[in-house]
Design a protein around this nucleic acid. Structure first.
Length: 879
RNA sequence: GGGCAGUUAGCUCAGCGGUAGAGCACUGUCCUCACACGACAGGGGUCAUAGGUUCGAAUCCUAUACUGCCCACCA
C-alpha cells in the first residue's frame, strides 16, 4: 500500500540507482532503427548547476525520454566545457585568496591545478545532472579538453589552416584589460552608460584662426591622436583639409584630413583620430596611411611611455582626469555635455573593453558562413521559434573574421610552432629541437563549435558518427545563438557537409517572478538543488518546463513549484486509489483491448474519448516543439477529467458488487492511468516510474522501466463526440445542483430530492439513464420526472440542460436567499442571451456567416432563451 | 540608430477570427471511506490606446504609447 502522500526523496534515490545499474540510458548504433540524438550544451566546469541548466536539461530530457518511449534509438551525450576565460578567472580568484597568482605558479603548475580542480567540479555537475533525472548516456561522457576532443580541435585547426582560412595578423581587437586577453566581437557586450561628450579646441599650428573644436567621449586618447578628420563636404571646414593643428598638451603637429565617414551632424563635425585605440580611427588610418599611429595605452590598461611623461603609468581613468584638468587649465576645454553611449564590456568580467592593436589569430569567416545561410534558407536547418531565424541570418551575412587566440593558459594551445626565421609549422606536438609553441590558447568556443562531431569521434569516420550525426535537435538559450549555434552549423557543414542538427529549440532564460534576471547581487537566485530537496525533482522539472512557452522567458519563483509538487501528489494518490480498489491478485492484467464494449457506460466512453484527445493534443504539441503545451494537456486531462470526474463516477461501480461492470471500470482506471503516467514520464520521471511499477501486476506491462515500455497506443479508436456531448449535459446538471446546494448552504451530508421538470426528451433520457451519476456526485437521493413545470412549494430551482430541477427544501432555506440567487442567475442568463442575440438577430450574420456557424449560434440562442425563460418563470412564482 | 517581442483577472501567463481561460492569490462550505499537497462552489477582466478590414476581432491590418530583448564602430 502506498503512503498517504508522495515522498520524493527515497523514490528518487532508488530509481536513480536502478537506472544506473541497468545502464538504462546507454545507446549503441542500431542499423535500421529510427534514431534520436542530442548533444548536451556542455556546462562550464566553473561551478554548480543553476536554474538555467535545470530548464535547459529538463527540456532535453523530456525530448529524449519522449522519443525513446515512441520507439527511437535515443542517445543523449553528456559532457562539460572547459570554459576558457571564465574558468581561469575563477581559479585566479582562488589563487588571489592564497596570495598567489598564475604567474607566480608558472604555466605548468597552474594547469595542473586547473586540471585537479575542474576534475572535481566536473563530477559535481554531472552528478547534479544525474539527480535532475537526465537520461544521459553516461558511457559517452566527453570534455571539451580531453584527449579525443583535442584531436578534433587539432584536425579542425589544421584543416582550416591548410584551406588558408586561418591567419595571423595585427588587427584592432577587443582587449579585456582585466582578463589580459583579446576577445572576439560577440564576446563584447554593449552597455548603455551615461557619459560625457567633451568639446576640445585644437589650435591651428600656424597660430592663424581658431583651430578646430573636436568632440570626444575619450579625452585620454588625445595623447595618441595623429590627425583630426572632417567630412570633405562639410561647408564649415572647406579649405581646412591639409592644414595642421597643434595637438594640445603635447605640442605635436597633426594634420586635418578629409574622410567621408565623418558625420557632419554629430558633435562639431570634427573628429580626433586615434588610430591605435579606436576601430573607426584605425579605418581612417587605412585610408590616410601617412598619419601613422601612436600607441598610448598598453595591454595592462595603463598609459604607455608614449603618452608622455605626465601620464605614463597612469590608468585610463586617471589619465582621463589629468588630461581634462590640463585642458581646462589651458582653456582648451570648450564644453562638456551629457551623452549616452554604448560602452563595450567584457562578457566575462564586465570591465570596459579597450580596442587595441595586436597580433592575433583569426578564422576567415565569409566562406564558412555562406553554407550556413544556405542551410537555413533551404530549410535544412530550422530554428524554433522562428523569430530567431532573421537575426541569425543577419549575423551570418555580416560576419567578421573570428579572433580565436586568447592570451590565457586554460585551453587548447594553438598548435603552431616557431623556430627562428623559419616558416611557422602547424603540428600537434613539437616538430623537433628548438621549436617553440605559440603561447596563446584557442577561444573556448572553437572546441565547442566542433562538439556535435567531436563527441562521436570526428575526425575519425566512426560508426557513431555515421549513425548519430547529424543529431536530431539542439536545445539552448538565445544568449549563445551566435557564440555557439551558428559556429556549430558552420563547422558541421564545413567538415561533414551536413548541419550538425536540423532543428534548434531556443528557449528563454529563467527570470524571477517579476521578470528580473536572476543574479546573486539581487538575491533573487533560486537554487535548483534546494528546490529538488524541498519539493522533489519532478516538481521542479514540471514547473520549469510547463512555463517554458516557445520564445518566452520563464518567470520563476519558489511558489511556482508547489503547484507541480501538488500535481505529483495527485498522481500518487490517484494511483493509490486505483490500487486500493483492485483485487490483491488479478486473474490477468486489465486491458482496454479486451473490454467488453457492451459494458461500457457513458462515463467510460467519455473518459476514453477524452484520453485519446489528450494524447493527440500532447503529441501534436511535441511535434511542434512546444513542450509546455504537451505538459499542460496531460496535466489538465489527469486532474480535471480523470480525477475530478471519472474517478468519482467509477466509485459507484467500485463500491458495488463484483461483476463485469466493475471489471470494466477497473480496466479503464488502470489503463488510462497507466498510459497517462507513461506520457507524463518524460516530464516527471521519478514519480511515474514508481507508480508504473506499482501498477505493473495490473497493467500487464512487462518492461522493467517506463523507458523500456511503449507510449500508449490506442488500438481502437475511442474518439466519441456523442459521449462527450452527452457527458457534458449530465455534468452540467450535476454542477448546477451542486451550485444550488452551495449557495443555499444545504448541509453537505444531506441528500436532496430532485424533481426534473420540462419537456426536453433527450436531456430527460440522459438524466434518467444516468441518475446514478447525479445521485452520487450531487448527493441526491431520488430523481423524479414530470412534465408539469409548476414548481412545488418550498423548493429551490436549478436550470440545466433545458430542464428545471426543483429541489424541495422545506424549512431548510430562506426564500429571500433563494430569490436573490435566482435573480442573479436570471441576470447572468439574460446577459448571455443578449450576447448571442446580437449575433443571431443580425441579418448580415445569417446571410454571410458559414452555415454551421449559424446553426450552432441558433442552437445556442434557443438554449439560452429557454434557460432565461425558465429562471424568470420560477422567480415569478416564488413563495 | 536598426530589428524583434510583449501589453488579457490582484500576480504569472495561455488563447491568436466565432458566447473571455489556467495556475497562484482571494471568498464561502466541507477533515464526504485516494489526496486539506484535497473537494465543491464563488468573486474578479470595456483583452494598452486610436483608427481600419470583417456578418463578427483579444485574435488580422495601420498608427500611438509604454515595457523588455537582440544587433550596431557615429566620435
Amino acid at each position: 500500500m502506498l503512503d498517504k502522500a508522495y515522498d520524493p526523496g527515497p523514490v528518487e534515490s532508488r530509481w536513480l540507482q536502478e537506472w544506473e545499474a541497468a545502464r538504462l540510458f546507454h545507446s549503441e548504433p542500431k542499423a535500421g532503427a529510427r534514431m534520436f540524438s542530442i548533444v548536451i550544451p556542455p556546462p562550464n566546469v566553473t561551478g554548480a548547476l543553476h536554474i538555467g541548466h535545470a530548464l535547459n536539461n529538463t527540456l532535453q530530457d523530456v525530448l529524449v525520454r519522449w522519443h525513446r518511449l515512441h520507439g527511437a534509438e535515443t542517445c543523449w551525450v553528456p559532457g562539460t566545457d572547459h570554459g576558457g576565460i571564465a574558468t581561469q578567472n575563477v581559479m585566479e580568484k582562488q589563487l588571489k585568496g592564497e596570495s598567489l597568482s598564475r604567474h607566480a605558479l608558472g604555466r605548468e603548475k597552474f594547469l595542473e591545478r586547473m586540471q585537479a580542480w575542474t576534475r572535481s567540479t566536473k563530477s559535481t555537475i554531472l552528478g547534479q545532472l544525474k539527480r535532475l533525472g537526465c537520461a544521459l548516456d553516461w558511457q559517452r561522457e566527453a570534455f571539451t579538453m580531453d584527449e579525443a576532443r583535442a584531436k578534433s580541435v587539432f584536425s579542425a585547426f589544421k584543416a582550416l589552416w591548410d584551406a588558408r582560412l586561418i591567419y595571423r595578423g595585427e588587427r584592432m581587437v577587443n582587449w579585456c584589460v582585466r582578463c589580459g586577453t583579446a576577445l572576439s566581437d560577440i564576446e563584447v557586450e554593449h552597455e548603455e552608460r551615461k557619459g560625457k561628450l567633451w568639446h576640445i579646441r585644437y589650435p591651428a599650428a600656424d597660430g592663424k584662426g581658431e583651430g578646430l573644436v573636436v568632440a570626444t567621449t575619450r579625452p585620454e586618447t588625445l595623447l595618441g591622436d595623429t590627425a583630426v578628420a572632417v567630412n570633405p563636404r562639410d561647408n564649415r571646414y572647406l579649405g581646412l583639409v591639409g592644414r595642421k593643428l597643434k595637438l594640445p598638451l603635447t605640442g605635436r603637429e597633426i594634420p586635418i584630413v578629409g574622410d567621408e565617414h565623418v558625420d557632419a551632424t554629430f558633435g562639431t563635425g570634427a573628429v580626433k583620430v586615434t588610430p591605435a585605440h579606436d576601430p573607426n580611427d584605425f579605418e581612417i588610418l587605412q585610408r590616410h596611411t601617412e598619419i601613422g599611429l601612436r600607441k598610448v595605452i598598453g595591454p595592462d590598461g595603463k598609459m604607455t611611455p608614449d603618452a608622455g611623461e605626465g601620464c605614463a603609468g597612469l590608468s585610463r581613468e586617471q589619465a582621463r582626469d589629468k588630461v581634462l584638468a590640463d585642458l581646462a587649465a589651458e582653456g582648451l576645454l570648450v564644453k562638456t555635455e551629457d551623452h549616452k553611449n554604448a560602452v563595450g564590456v567584457c562578457y566575462r568580467c564586465g570591465s570596459a573593453i579597450e580596442p587595441l592593436l595586436s597580433l592575433q589569430w583569426f578564422v576567415k569567416m565569409g566562406d564558412l558562413a555562406k553554407p550556413a545561410i544556405e542551410a537555413l534558407d533551404k530549410g535544412q536547418f530550422k530554428i524554433h521559434p522562428q523569430n530567431w531565424a532573421n537575426p541569425y541570418r543577419e549575423w551570418l551575412s555580416n560576419i567578421k573574421d573570428w579572433c580565436v587566440s586568447r592570451q590565457i593558459w586554460w585551453g587548447h594551445r594553438i598548435p603552431v610552432w616557431y623556430k627562428e626565421s623559419q616558416e611557422p609549422v602547424v603540428a600537434a606536438s613539437s616538430p623537433g629541437e628548438g621549436w617553440t609553441q605559440d603561447p596563446d590558447v584557442l577561444d573556448t568556443w572553437f572546441s565547442s563549435a566542433l562538439w556535435p562531431m567531436s563527441v562521436f569521434g570526428w575526425p575519425d569516420k566512426t560508426e557513431d558518427l555515421r549513425f548519430y550525426y547529424p543529431t536530431s535537435v539542439l536545445v539552448t538559450g538565445y544568449e549563445i545563438l551566435y557564440l555557439w549555434v551558428a559556429r556549430m552549423q558552420m563547422m558541421g557543414l564545413r567538415f561533414q557537409g551536413q548541419p550538425p542538427f536540423s532543428d534548434a529549440i531556443i528557449h528563454g532564460i529563467v527570470r524571477d517572478k517579476s521578470g528580473k534576471k536572476m543574479s546573486k547581487s539581487l538575491g533573487n537566485v533560486v537554487d535548483p538543488l534546494l528546490m529538488m530537496d524541498k519539493y522533489g525533482t519532478d516538481a521542479l522539472r514540471f514547473s520549469l518546463v510547463v512555463q517554458a512557452h516557445p520564445g518566452r522567458d520563464v518567470p520563476f519563483a519558489e511558489d511556482s513549484i508547489t503547484g507541480s509538487r501538488n500535481f505529483a501528489n495527485k498522481l500518487w494518490n490517484s494511483t493509490r486509489f486505483v490500487l486500493m480498489n483492485l483485487p490483491e491478485r488479478p486473474a490477468r492484467p486489465y486491458s482496454l483491448e479486451t473490454l467488453s464494449h457492451c459494458c461500457l457506460e457513458l462515463a467510460d466512453k467519455w473518459i476514453l474519448a477524452e484520453y485519446q484527445a489528450a494524447l493527440e493534443q500532447a503529441r501534436k504539441a511535441m511535434e511542434s516543439c512546444d513542450v509546455a503545451a504537451a505538459g499542460d494537456a496531460l496535466y489538465g486531462f489527469l486532474w480535471d477529467k480523470f480525477c475530478d470526474w471519472y474517478v468519482e463516477l467509477a466509485k459507484i461501480r467500485l463500491q458495488g458488487i463484483e461483476g463485469e461492470e466493475k471489471e470494466s471500470a477497473r480496466a479503464i482506471l488502470v489503463q488510462v492511468l497507466n498510459g497517462t503516467l507513461k506520457m507524463l514520464h518524460p516530464f516527471m520521471p521519478y514519480v511515474t516510474e514508481e507508480l508504473f511499477a506499482a501498477l505493473k501486476p495490473y497493467s500487464g506491462e512487462m518492461a522493467a522501466f517506463v523507458l523500456k515500455a511503449q507510449a500508449p497506443r490506442t488500438a481502437f479508436d475511442w474518439s466519441n463526440e456523442e459521449a462527450r456531448r452527452d457527458m457534458g449535459t449530465v455534468m452540467s446538471v450535476i454542477s448546477e445542483l451542486r451550485a444550488l446546494r452551495a449557495q443555499l448552504n444545504v448541509p453537505p451530508g444531506l441528500k436532496i430530492k430532485v424533481i426534473a421538470a420540462g419537456d426536453a426528451p433527450e436531456s430527460e433520457a440522459l438524466v434518467a439513464g444516468h441518475q446514478g451519476y447525479v445521485k452520487a456526485l450531487a448527493r441526491v437521493e431520488a430523481v423524479e420526472f414530470t412534465k408539469n413545470l409548476r414548481r412545488p412549494a418550498q423548493s429551490a430551482t436549478a436550470v440545466a440542460a433545458g430542464l428545471s430541477f426543483f429541489v424541495p427544501l422545506a424549512g431548510l432555506i430562506d426564500f429571500d436567499t433563494e430569490r436573490q440567487r435566482l435573480q442573479k442567475e436570471a441576470q447572468k442568463a439574460e446577459a448571455e442571451l443578449q450576447k448571442i442575440a446580437q449575433k443571431v438577430k443580425n441579418p448580415n450574420f445569417i446571410a454571410r456567416a458559414p452555415r454551421e456557424e449559424v446553426a450552432t449560434a441558433e442552437a445556442q440562442y434557443g438554449a439560452a432563451e429557454a434557460r432565461f425563460a425558465r429562471i424568470k418563470d420560477t422567480l415569478q412564482y416564488l413563495d
